[in-house]
């Protein structure tokens, strides 16, 4: 009888611990806010318009509070990323060794059915007909951390042995707007986003070079984020397209942005090896870019 009583007490204690642990976890989870960073493809406000609804849905769905965080520009974002100020991050910059290795970022997800191509575009009325025409010309780009909008075009120019003079812009949205208004003659950018912005004005520009279709921007997570949290976020985002409220958010987003976002799917680092190698190559300085 004594043994039974003791066993019951232990069992209860263990159950209580488990319960407390679960409660702690939940409370901890409920109390902690995770920072969701996004690369500066679009302006902060535009990015917030896209991701605030998604993150609110995530919180409602999973109980995990995610708050959008960005730098004022791509450079600032890069710095913050490297300082580990983002728990989750959307964008190619997380694939940089300087970010992956110290912070342990790994790829969780990527967008489904989103075209991701890099391009070098010029004004249709400009004299530029080929990459070689860009020799010594000014080329507007975003931060070097942008793989699609910076790294790949630079590689192409390097391959064509064309030296250009780079002009930086804080984000691609501003870059595209400036091009649309005819303020810049040549730019390197994300072709998909550019084409959406220039819809109906195809006769106003010329594509000198474009890449193959690449995987869409990855969503990655730091090692500091508990596994369960990462997995839950991953699962939720994958399931978002099947959720009625999630579908409405995605449809609204597509209408506003002109995008064709249809949800997320599981992704791994292996799919982005090309980018990782590309970043390494950039770091090694073998790309002929600016002066």
């Amino acid at each position: 009888m004594v043994n039974n009583t003791l066993f019951s007490k232990k069992l209860s204690f263990y159950f209580a611990l488990i319960g407390l642990f679960v409660l702690y976890q939940h409370t901890a989870l409920a109390g902690q806010t995770y920072r969701f960073g996004v690369t500066n493809v679009e302006t902060v406000m535009t990015t917030a318009a896209q991701w605030n609804p998604i993150l609110a849905w995530l919180e409602q769905r999973t109980g995990i509070r995610l708050t959008l965080q960005m730098g004022m520009n791509a450079e600032d974002t890069q710095a913050r990323l490297m300082r580990g100020e983002y728990d989750f991050f959307l964008g190619y910059p997380l694939l940089q060794d300087a970010v992956r290795e110290p912070l342990g970022f790994r790829v969780l997800l990527k967008s489904k059915n989103v075209s991701n191509r890099s391009a070098i575009v010029v004004q249709a009325k400009s004299r530029y007909r080929s990459l070689s025409d860009l020799k010594e010309a000014k080329l507007w780009v975003t931060h070097e951390s942008a793989f699609i909008a910076h790294t790949l075009p630079m590689a192409a120019l390097s391959g064509a042995a064309v030296k250009v003079r780079l002009q930086s812009v804080s984000n691609q949205e501003s870059l595209v707007m400036a091009f649309k208004m005819g303020q810049i003659p040549a730019a390197a950018l994300n072709l998909g986003m550019f084409e959406r912005a220039m819809a109906g004005h195809s006769e106003d520009y010329r594509i000198l070079w474009s890449s193959a279709d690449l995987p869409s921007l990855p969503i990655g997570v730091q090692n500091s984020v508990p596994l369960g949290v990462a997995e839950r976020v991953q699962a939720a985002l994958i399931e978002m397209v099947n959720d009625e409220a999630g579908q409405k958010i995605l449809q609204s987003l597509n209408r506003r942005m002109g995008a064709k976002l249809s949800g997320w799917q599981v992704a791994t680092d292996a799919e982005y090896q090309f980018a990782i190698a590309g970043y390494r190559q950039l770091e090694r300085g073998k790309l002929a870019c600016d002066d």
């Binding site: 902060v44 406000m45 990015t47 917030a48 959008l68 965080q69 960005m70 730098g71 004022m72 600032d76 100020e85």
Partner: peptide, 12 residues
């Protein structure tokens, strides 16, 4: 409002 949002997102 936009400034508030911007500041919060950029933590500035």
């Amino acid at each position: 409002v936009q400034d508030i949002v911007f500041a919060n997102i950029t933590d500035d």
